[in-house]
Design a protein around this nucleic acid. Sequence first.
DNA 1: GTTGAAAATTTACGCGCGTAAAAATTTGCT
DNA 2: AGCAAATTTTTACGCGCGTAAATTTTCAAC
Lengths: 343, 343
Amino acid sequence: MSDAKIRTMEEFAAVSGISRPTLSKYFNDPASVRKSTRARIEAAIERFGYRPNIYALNQNRKQTRNIGILVPYLADPFFAEMARHVEAVVIAAGYRPILLSSHGDPAQELENLDSLRDIRPAGVLLAPLGRRSDAERVRAFCEEVTTVLFDCSVEGAGEAFVGSDNDQSVGLIVDRLCDTGEPPAFFEMRDPSNPNALKRREAYARAMTRRGLEPMYVRAEGTGWDFEEVGFRGGLEAIARRRLPTDTVLCSNDRLAIGFLAAAYEKGLRVGRGPGCALRVAGHDDHPFARYTCPRLTTVAQDYEAIARKSAETLLSLIRDDSRAASREVALFGGRLVERASA
Amino acid sequence: MSDAKIRTMEEFAAVSGISRPTLSKYFNDPASVRKSTRARIEAAIERFGYRPNIYALNQNRKQTRNIGILVPYLADPFFAEMARHVEAVVIAAGYRPILLSSHGDPAQELENLDSLRDIRPAGVLLAPLGRRSDAERVRAFCEEVTTVLFDCSVEGAGEAFVGSDNDQSVGLIVDRLCDTGEPPAFFEMRDPSNPNALKRREAYARAMTRRGLEPMYVRAEGTGWDFEEVGFRGGLEAIARRRLPTDTVLCSNDRLAIGFLAAAYEKGLRVGRGPGCALRVAGHDDHPFARYTCPRLTTVAQDYEAIARKSAETLLSLIRDDSRAASREVALFGGRLVERASA
DNA sequence: GTTGAAAATTTACGCGCGTAAAAATTTGCT
DNA sequence: AGCAAATTTTTACGCGCGTAAATTTTCAAC
């Protein structure tokens, strides 16, 4: 920091007394030079504050150290949390995360894929929009770029998929709800754009059938990513028209549940499992806000960190081996029951 | 898309029948070539699917078209929304947003600043962590890179600052609360790391004094970014120990209010302004979830979109004029009262 | 059909770094 | 001290594109 700014590796070689090719080796992989040399280089870096030009670097390297992270909707705290954990792993491994959000828009998702192509990432972690994704182009993208999908799968796309085991997690909470009161009706969007929603619907049906019970559905109209609003309106309507077949409601996800709880409150229905409660409500995901609903939301927690870590590490190992995985690996994580006051 | 992949501009020049310098001009600014030429180029792009190498581009251009966006905590929907709006403006102007989050960590913020330096952005939109930011290094960064601060200011840093007019917005809601019931006590973190919190505290004091009232404070312990938790615990304690001097609470921000409402619910206190209500609670920001609390939160809305747009546009015009603004421009946006059920 | 300005082409060099090959140096070991 | 192996240095070229200068072509207006 003391002397005039060093702008190029050439200049840095001059002042540090180390040849440029050796410096280049060092910046590619510090472990590839002798320890004494490394020490000298690092001292010089400290002293002159030199950092290689990242564009020249990426232009000439066969592989960049960029990792693309594309999520469908970053304003959803679920994905924000996911991205946060993924980033941490990626950075720790010495890569540079590039975070992109499609903001719920399929066109934006395609633009983001192009954008990612442009930066020639070493790999991409992709949580697709779901049913509204252009599956064909997602697959085409995955052909070109080493990609691991998470949260939501697209048939035949990506070297691997890491998601949640909806069968396990939904089974868990259905069983619990049945054991402690009336069996739950399933509250969901009529036309969900996320495949997880469909899997949960089916998982719910199986869990009920397994117990010899008839599945019951309560459906909310609405599209897009404003789930709370959909849950709220759907909840208001279901309550007003007495469309709730039991006193227990299992929501397809926590954001719907948050809206539903607001509706119940609005309608003066007391939610909870105590006496004097008219309704039990449960969710799915353990959304960051689930613990601050009124009452606090019973739900089944996804292990954000585990899913994020597994996704990132799978991608990183694919990158290191440069192996376009022989078979498409699928890893599903089970949920953990989180019993709070709402059910 | 039909023919073999074109990899370089040279190749693209050959197949498109247009000289490379002209192509270069076009990619720098499509309007700088004759209309007929532009049409031919665009037809060829369509046909061959060529896109210039972004690294070579950025290495050689004097200025990249990257715009850095650095927020303190992306898992906070407030900043997620902010980022979303900012991104839209930046993209529309033909720039490429690079979104970074410090995840509440000052060390990460410094790393992010270095990271941004590396990509030589045309400009940066920076929402600092606040009091925990390394002000000296933030200023140093702003010396090097054209930067507009938003949401939270750092003394003497950045060409401009765009934020909210806390005096106006807090005054608005204090007046309203006073007009419709008991004057509010101010609920806040004892040791807030965000300067807005301090400004709101002062604004509250002024608003109360103006009415000849004594300011009343209720303070919650806790640090970090888990505001809901702080609000919840602080709320539980304040209620348990009867530390609420009036029946009306104005929270320093909506996330605290969300926690406080959860605490009130837990304690069986009915919140709202109707008869039978023990407490009125209001917030500040119109957080995306404020409309789904129980009861729905009365608050004062920040105009996310306006702040985002103004920030981005200020930066873009600074970039275009290449003018290191003569004086540090400050733009403050007023709030809009959003009366819902909680107060 | 001329003319002059505007636009495109030709030619050539530079950006900062990766990397290959050959030569020189350092290192660890006997 | 002597030797082979490991490491570094020297030298040189390439990556894909920006851009300057000189030249040629195109265009619009007379």
